[in-house]
Design a protein around this nucleic acid. Sequence first.
DNA 1: AAACACACATGATAATTGTCATGTTTTTAG
DNA 2: CTAAAAACATGACAATTATCATGTGTGTTT
Lengths: 228, 228
Amino acid sequence: MGKCEQCIVRQLNSLKTLTKDELGRLSTCKADRVIKKGEHIFEEGEHLNGVYCVKSGVCKLVKLSPNGKDQIVKLNTSGDLLGQRSTLSNEPANLSAIAVTDMEVCFIPQTEILKAVGDNPNFTVDMFKTLGKSIRESDDLLVNMSQKSMRERLAATLIMLKESYGKEKDGTLSLVLTREEFAGIVGTATESVIRLLSQFNKEKLIHIEGRHISIVDIEKLRRISDGV
Amino acid sequence: MGKCEQCIVRQLNSLKTLTKDELGRLSTCKADRVIKKGEHIFEEGEHLNGVYCVKSGVCKLVKLSPNGKDQIVKLNTSGDLLGQRSTLSNEPANLSAIAVTDMEVCFIPQTEILKAVGDNPNFTVDMFKTLGKSIRESDDLLVNMSQKSMRERLAATLIMLKESYGKEKDGTLSLVLTREEFAGIVGTATESVIRLLSQFNKEKLIHIEGRHISIVDIEKLRRISDGV
DNA sequence: AAACACACATGATAATTGTCATGTTTTTAG
DNA sequence: CTAAAAACATGACAATTATCATGTGTGTTT
């Protein structure tokens, strides 16, 4: 059970604005949790009563669909705070959070967050910025989803994976997703993703080795994603 | 130039949490503005330096596309605050706001908003709630856009228009949109909207008289929008 | 190591949606 | 009131995407 004061991850989110005293109190009341790939962190409709600070690993925020076509709204990783919206506006979660890789997270109770909002104007301002960023990203994503073709969206997704999560020594994308997860991100059927990926492979834009994909021609992918 | 203290619209948004003193100061520094149908209130990329409180009329928040296929992200009406996100996080607007009907709006400078955030915790909390609601709505919309068919989305849009803006004495929807605007909301080509609307008309779900549409069978529309 | 589940792959076909062309009607501006 | 512009409408066709069926690989569990 590490101390928040020494946690590097904190520098990546609004918690960086907290004072030493505030961090000290946080250290005593936070709860560490290890989550295995595939496990649910929380589910749609649940009252969270706090936020999860992601120390390591990646999770997906998903709207589960009765027909199995789950839509992935967002991927979260080290430094991200999960459940900010619900905690600040005191509403149930509207999305489920599921681990895509093994994860370590810290749970911070709602009371602490609300206290920080009351006491520390810097924290409040930073929260506004984070929420604002979230809205802007959602709007942009909405426009992309409704104006771009599958091919364009899949190209954009591959680029995003490279830029957000990087690649391994062998050149393959570090974040490994199933075809079904790709389908959940771009909002299509798994078969369509499979076809489009192997088409990209044939066009020498990417190289596929099972679930491990490396990007060969990122410039061309960028042009595709921009609809040129 | 009315006074904020007596403005009913204020009760509909975060300004309802302001004290008498704060409202008094607002009255002296706000700027009234009349906007004609089709006029731009602000544009993507612009620095707003404040929020617009909508007194009357309706506007659309749009992402303009070079090919003319503009995506309508949101409709705003009486009581809504435009530019909240940009003002609070001090970023340029990511969407353009265009009047769909004639409007009256009040411009409130950013300094006043930030002062209220610093002085009045109730205002801050309400702002968090509003931003949170905005994120939730964006996420829901995203899922709808990527999982529903055009037919389902158009049905949902018609229901939304009825529920949010009501109908005239003759039964037609109060908010009159062009087919192009419908297309911008559901994210499709204008021709597709025209075809789907006249199909709904044939199926006796709606009644079309030029731009004036009345809903005949809302239950059936609801079932369509739910994908049943 | 065998068996089982799951992910990946591909073909055939249907359904949906987009595009282009063209004509009519309605609105708006002078 | 009339001319021009914008919005509406429809047909024909192409492109995209979904669905269903079926088979192969891959990894996981016992």
